[in-house]
Design a protein around this nucleic acid. Structure first.
Length: 438
DNA sequence: GCGATCAGTT
DNA sequence: CACAACTGATCGC
């Protein structure tokens, strides 16, 4: 079976060029310090952060692509030996530092791979990104849009990060005598922390490795590893728990703030436009929260909008680095691709973006009715993408995936996974199964 | 030691 | 219940 000439966020196969959208670990599975299969194309900031994540990596493999400009890459078809030129433009994805989308064009047509992205309409930076994309697309039709469909369901609605950042300020200001703990990952949410620091004129504690990352990002004055300098600390999300907060509160009054992409599901039939979400595990829900009567229902901060207090020490705020449904819709309307695919299929509930946005695709009907779309097949032979979205597997893996295949629920657009819980994790089995003629 | 896979965490 | 992102154990080489 012919392998893809290029790979996006996919590191286990063999390609001639590899593209990295950003440095979160679910996009670098298979990448390591000793990985050396070929050139990696990424943004300048990702390249700067790269050696910190993969010390000892052969940096001569990295190819920096300035954002917003086209670059040509020569590829050679392994089967025919003929060479072709691929053009690629990285575009700011507004997901985390260094994150980009990749716009490709070549003999195969025009592809846009968003990686993880947030498409806010309010900020200056978002406006620049929108203009950049429109300029890049002005002479092209996107044949296939590979879309971050993490929250591709109208149930997912949350405000812009700027609004939520202000909500976080309100929480902190309303607790002047408390220490503040904020859960973050190894990359991302820097803008939130900078906003807090700027508004409240305080430094923010981070753990030592995170301080190094902050320095690499160019933030030299805002962050500290000295706890005595500030009451606001950003801690690893995996060390942020109810138990942690309860332990801290035996020493000093402390509240936790979790900026989370957890589902902020609109429940129109319940409490009007109130937003609900949860950062609590089911274990905790059963064992402690429900047993603690009434505490979580008090609303000491009536003006916090969708902020939800789940625990006497913990606030969850809908600060998401992925696009909400309305933003995905805006994006699709802007790009108007001929066809599209979701790149996230790890959930037990996969929503095909075509269900919601298919009518926006110019050639959607014809693409669906044609038994063989030659152009699409050419495209798919060229491009191998990450394991959330693999189009190519060996024959035996293909058989396995037949068994684990998803089932399309008629008229719902929701594919209910039949994978066992064991096999459910990020197998990327869903997308191409529905594209292949049987 | 390394990569792949799985289990488990918030 | 759910998510994205992450850590850590284990296994085969």
């Amino acid at each position: 079976m012919e392998k893809g000439l290029i790979s996006v966020d996919r590191w286990t196969g063999h390609s001639q060029a590899y593209f990295l959208t950003h440095l979160h670990s679910d996009h670098t599975q298979g990448l390591s310090s000793s990985w050396a299969k070929g050139p990696i194309f990424c943004s300048r900031l990702t390249a700067k952060l790269f050696p910190f994540k993969f010390p000892g990596f052969n940096l001569s493999l990295l190819r920096l692509l300035p954002i917003g400009t086209w670059h040509s890459i020569s590829l050679v078809s392994p089967s025919s030996g003929s060479s072709s030129t691929l053009q690629v433009m990285p575009i700011d994805a507004h997901h985390c530092p260094g994150s980009v989308m990749f716009l490709f064009r070549g003999e195969f047509g025009c592809l846009l791979y968003t990686g993880d992205f947030r498409w806010e309409t309010t900020s200056k930076r978002a406006e620049i990104g929108r203009t950049m994309l429109l300029n890049a697309l002005k002479d092209d039709v996107v044949d296939i849009l590979y879309l971050d469909n993490t929250y591709c369901n109208p149930s997912y609605a949350f405000p812009s990060r700027a609004i939520v950042a202000q909500q976080v300020i309100d929480i902190i200001v309303s607790h002047p005598e408390h220490d503040i703990i904020i859960g973050i990952d190894s990359l991302g949410k820097e803008d939130l922390l900078l906003h807090i620091s700027h508004e409240l004129k305080i430094k923010i504690w981070v753990w030592p490795e995170r301080l190094q990352t902050m320095h690499l990002l160019g933030f030299h004055d805002t962050f500290t590893t000295k706890t005595s300098l500030t009451r606001v600390r950003a801690v690893p999300r995996y060390s942020f728990s109810v138990e942690t907060l309860e332990g801290l509160n035996t020493m000093r009054p402390t509240i936790g703030i979790m900026p989370s992409g957890l589902p902020w599901v609109v429940r129109p039939l319940e409490n009007g436009d109130k937003l609900f979400g949860s950062l609590l595990t089911s274990r905790y829900n059963r064992s402690k929260w429900s047993g603690n009567g009434g505490n979580h229902t008090e609303k000491p901060n009536g003006n916090l909008g969708s902020v939800e207090k789940f625990h006497k020490y913990i606030y969850s705020v809908p600060y998401s680095d992925h696009s909400c449904f309305a933003e995905i819709e805006d994006f699709v309307k802007l790009v108007l691709p001929t066809n599209m695919k979701g790149i996230v299929s790890s959930s037990s509930c996969y929503v095909d973006p075509l269900y919601y946005f298919g009518r926006l695709c110019g050639a959607y009907q014809s693409a669906q009715s044609l038994p063989h779309n030659k152009r699409k097949e050419r495209v798919e032979r060229l491009l191998a993408v990450n394991n959330k979205n693999t189009f190519r597997c060996g024959a035996s893996a293909g058989l396995e995936r037949k068994r684990a295949m998803t089932v399309k629920v008629k008229n719902s657009g929701i594919h209910v996974s039949r994978m066992s819980a064991l096999r459910r994790k990020k197998r990327g089995a869903k997308i191409e199964e529905n594209d292949r003629p049987n």
